[in-house]
Design a protein around this nucleic acid. Structure first.
Lengths: 370, 370
DNA sequence: ATGAAAGCGCTAACAT
DNA sequence: ATGTTAGCGCTTTCAT
């Protein structure tokens, strides 16, 4: 992987031999002095220390690694660190690694299987001690193969063909509870904008949404469900479309964190007031959600705990400690916290066409709401 | 006969020699086959390819590095990737590195010189091709020494003793223009909450603030200036204190991005209305600033461009291209954009304590910008 | 076209 | 306490 790095600008590196020669002693003595070996003359140690400083010696990790040093780098492969969830995760894992004597290497896949492959390969070539990864849905077969022979923890998402332990959020439960809340306060036309089902998280959360409807026997109009990329832009368009519907939703449920901004943009553009015109529930909980006016009701994630758990589990695997759960592959699913704040309210009476009481709902069955 | 499957799944690594032995050829032939050497039998190449797959061979980066491979990792050392500025930076640099054939290694210093040292050392030991760093104010001497013999670009902050080129935002100018705006619309008691002057960015921005006052001959009450850590918590306390003053500020200028959330919390707690009770200008421009009600007036940063420039400059240094500017160390200072939105207004007429609806509501004095 | 051998920087046996 | 040597995985002459 050295195609672009043509030449190092600074000169060649000072080695242990250079120091030995400079001091007129043997390189093994230098090595011992450096590693504070018991049988080493204090004078020699001191001389070596000074020579090291003077000559600017920096140990060569490659050489050490070659000698069988159990590398101490841990790879973290995330799709997008601008997503608050992943930002916090990176920070936490980094901290945890430092404490555990590891060096975290963060790589951003941008959800591209080719990038993902490059990163995994580089990590394997560097003999990383372990890898934490949020797998892309389209993970390449060769990537999968590369992941077989190294400690791995899947984070947030779970790839069907990967057997490595996973730590994720129970998105189905989270969305289920949120949707249930909306249904309970009377909404029957709830718009859902979330990730495509190729991602495990996307599929789960969508399932939570549909299950909530099933539970109360409410019909789910498929026109109200918009699936796409986990980005503000997609969400903005999707919410915009939803609002244009002849029979628009009375509430909105966002299935991923970066989508919030898009939804808010669309809402602002449509000049709709939350929650009087429309109820809104988001996913994730960056600090500003609770400062918004009105404070944003959301599905909060215990991000810190998840990141901690993840790092711990990987380190356990690396050191060959006891398994996280039963069997070789434990999948931990952490429950989100539904944070009811101020962006939900019962739906407004239908302006224009229908009347609310006794009027036949055009779409929903009111079955269970009495 | 070696059991291939066993080898592949075992913890120890398959080497080029294992393949040679498996195939009954010499390891140098394998090496040539792998690097697609011209004088190699096509059959052999094919056999090797299959053996590689079967045995799960992964090249050893350390061995290659030891042979003199220039190494293609670029280190990025940032204080805090939850800060939007740095999050975007990491994403951008990562992307740019991938395109340039490099592998970005992101390390988080948390502004701790010891962490910083560890990261720089690890990077140097790994023979990183170059390093992009936001130096901590208290950088250790040994860290500084380590940074002397490798391509380095300073990002966002600039360490007085480091001569490496830097790319940063002209915070003095940014804050100056913002403060000027507040002074022009009549504010005379402006609170400034920013980073301590030990950071170059902190010192610069504060200078911008004081200079704006000097320019119009306005007195600056030092009680209105609060310097501390670039975190929401500090800002919350500081703003809270400012609001308790017997003669409280009529406007607030925040000197760093993460402080915004803290300020908003304090404002909410004090039940103050922006901009009628108090004007507010922030630093940085995450997407939600322009969605806030009222839309947040802020000092915006061309983050993407800065990150791009930074990566480019480092790659230039690595490949020994033409210098960025004059001399060995060019310091690029990029101008921020003052984004006048809706959180500033002329101060309320000063009378006793509070009045509610006297102030003229002129939100967008759009004309001004930098 | 392929094999043999040297050597990159370092550590750890093994000899002094 | 210090020197000598071998070898980690790989590429690269140099011989075949």
């Amino acid at each position: 992987m050295a195609n672009a790095a043509k030449l190092a600008s600074s000169g060649s590196h000072v080695t242990i031999k250079d120091i030995a020669e400079y001091l007129g002693i043997s390189h093994s003595t230098v090595s011992r002095a450096l590693s504070d070996h018991p049988y080493t003359n204090a004078d020699t140690k001191e001389k070596v220390r000074r020579a090291v400083e003077k000559l600017g010696y920096v140990p060569n990790a490659a050489a050490r690694s070659l000698r069988g040093d159990p590398g101490s780098i841990i790879g973290l492969i995330l799709p997008d660190i601008q997503n608050e969830l992943f930002g916090v995760t990176a920070q936490t894992v980094s901290h945890r690694c430092l404490r555990g004597g590891f060096q975290m290497v963060l790589a951003v896949s941008e959800d591209d299987p080719v990038n993902e492959y490059k990163h995994v390969l580089a990590l394997r070539e560097a003999r990383a001690a372990g890898i934490i990864i949020t797998p892309t849905p389209g993970m390449l077969a060769k990537t999968h193969a590369l992941l077989q022979s190294v400690p791995v923890v899947q984070y947030s998402r779970r790839h069907p063909r990967l057997s490595a332990p996973s730590i994720s959020v129970d998105g189905e439960r989270g969305v289920f509870v949120a949707a249930q809340h909306l249904l309970q306060i009377g909404h029957r036309r709830i718009g859902y904008v979330g990730m495509a089902s190729d991602k495990s998280t996307g599929a789960e959360r969508l399932a939570g949404f549909t299950n909530a409807h099933k539970q109360v026997g409410a019909r789910l109009d498929s026109a109200l469900v918009r699936l796409g990329a986990s980005h503000a832009d997609f969400a903005r368009t999707a919410v915009g479309d939803l609002l244009q519907l002849s029979d628009p939703p009375t509430a909105l449920l966002m299935g991923s964190n970066p989508m919030t901004v898009g939804a808010l943009k669309a809402l602002r553009q449509a000049d709709l007031e939350v929650p009087s015109d429309l109820s809104l529930i988001c996913f994730g909980d960056p600090p500003w959600y609770s400062l918004w006016t009105p404070r944003i009701t959301t599905i909060g994630l215990p991000t810190l705990e998840m990141a901690e758990a993840c790092a711990s589990e990987l380190m356990r695997q690396i050191s060959g400690g006891p398994a996280l759960g039963q069997g070789p592959a434990a999948h931990l699913s952490i429950e989100p916290m539904f944070l009811v704040r101020e962006t939900t309210a019962p739906p407004k009476p239908r302006s224009g066409l229908k009347r609310r009481r006794g009027g036949a709902k055009s779409a929903g069955s009111r079955a269970l709401s009495a």
